[in-house]
Design a protein around this nucleic acid. Sequence first.
DNA 1: TTGAAAGCGCTAACAC
DNA 2: GTGTTAGCGCTTTCAA
Lengths: 339, 339
Amino acid sequence: MITLKNLAERLNVSISTVSKALSDSDEISKETISRVKKLAGELNYQPNRVALSLKQNETKTIGVIIPNILNRFFAMALYGIQNEATKLGYSIITCITNEQLVKEQESISLLSNGSVDGFIIAVSEETLMSSRIEHLQTLSEKRIPMIMFDRNLNDVECNKVIINDFKAAHEVTNMFINRGKKQIAFISTINDLNVGALRRIGYENAIKMSVVPDLNPMYLFIKKEDDYQDLIKKFLINNPNIDAIIAADNITGTITVNVAINMGYDIPKNINLIGFTDEVVSNLSIPKLSYIDQNAETIGENALRLLVNELKNKDLDNAHSTLKIPFKIVHKETTRSSI
Amino acid sequence: MITLKNLAERLNVSISTVSKALSDSDEISKETISRVKKLAGELNYQPNRVALSLKQNETKTIGVIIPNILNRFFAMALYGIQNEATKLGYSIITCITNEQLVKEQESISLLSNGSVDGFIIAVSEETLMSSRIEHLQTLSEKRIPMIMFDRNLNDVECNKVIINDFKAAHEVTNMFINRGKKQIAFISTINDLNVGALRRIGYENAIKMSVVPDLNPMYLFIKKEDDYQDLIKKFLINNPNIDAIIAADNITGTITVNVAINMGYDIPKNINLIGFTDEVVSNLSIPKLSYIDQNAETIGENALRLLVNELKNKDLDNAHSTLKIPFKIVHKETTRSSI
DNA sequence: TTGAAAGCGCTAACAC
DNA sequence: GTGTTAGCGCTTTCAA
């Protein structure tokens, strides 16, 4: 690793001269500047980031804590965060908590020793369920900025980014009602998560507010360890008149299409279907699954932008708010109007 | 952020005394040690990582460069890397190159200024195709240790981790041959990648070496931008006697099952199918796709372990080698013996 | 048993 | 226009 000192020695000038020359200081003569820059170029000098961080008391690095990288939503959010970070000159240290509170606590504690300037966090399922939030409050106390996204905790004071899950579910439910669907079911593997709950409530609310008579909510709640295909099949057998399904997570929609087709249903003629997922997953079923796009990448980008903003205005003590990113309903084949 | 200096002032001792006390130096009296530790505990002192890094000339951070986080293989590998890193006391800075050479160059250049102690890299498609490897050679010159995995370049001298893709494809092809299959097809969206090529060659080789007469390779090569469902359907129509299929990537296997079922095929009776993918994807089709598990997590873990090993023995100039992680053939429903 | 000082690589206020 | 110095937080050698 080549340092300012190395350059200074070779050029027979002082370290500070080199430093100033490299930053085009007008204290330094044109000639010296070009000599310095020439050598720096030749030797491929790069300022040592660690020394800079120590000096400036900022690392230009952000800690990203996510529960599960195999979940496409988080993977895409991470991609958005990463991209925006690069643009703004930041690096990302990622920690995957695997939905465990302990790992989340460890990661945050590990990184809040000056390793990062701030955090972007989607908390683990365990954290949501247990409401253990001391590790997050510690960050506030230490005045380390943090943004939460997707999995938000009301009791933690910070800026947050989500999509309007309630509205999304509400809207598609109403769409089904307007299409004259009478038995609209709701399938979820994530009822324990707040996003899962919001989607469920949006659905429920639309059903209950409807003026259509005899409209009742129908649920299939699945646990992570269950056999999805099996439970969905049984659910369809037990409820043969279902004519629309909303899948609250990013995978059961696809599985439901496959199961229903396999049972001989004609989709979308017999059943309209929509999931909360994305383009790639949509292509994994025949017919292709319609979906509510959660704009994960946009969520990530916005989370990062908000955080960098906070870092730049650390002195100002702004009030916290929650940014709602618009969702997008993408009609593929499972909601083709059968009229 | 609370520092040694803070502690020293409060305790009316010198900074070095505090430092030594915290590391249980026997130069310091028991009493001082306990006083120091008590206060440090109360104030929740954590040594500043940046200062430590500068002093020790190591960051305990590793740069991980991967092409695409939405690819489950890389996501799982990252998870393995991350986990093992935490165990060994390292952090991970992730860069996603989105399969672009430029981003790969930028990421590496950005991080090779002392930000990380070493790299774990799966190069981008563009890098593979263009064979532009200066940015990787720079790392060797700078003596920054690096491990490559999955996407390996022969011209880059470093330790590498892969699965034996050739053998895996060879083995399943032979399995199909032994089952009496006569028209064994190979579908791939990744023929441009070396893993893709290795799988193809393993398949070809098994076909060619076979003593069964009239056995010929049959290919469907798909481009990323193509409509997968459509091309696969046409392929099946044009080759109605296919009785076995190997899907070289982690997604076309599932799509092929769905397309074939949709066309009225009975699987696995008419066609045996296997993909290079994982458990979760396997569950997205009916019948469930059999697959070759690439042990992505294990690959990641091993890559990290190798790298840390190198970091610990930076002086020793070991020869480089390629570690082959065993694959696992997981028989689900699409290879159920139809006999 | 404790403290002073140097130094990791860098910037910046302040001399000269 | 250039150099000296101090200091970011830490460890470690050497001195007291």
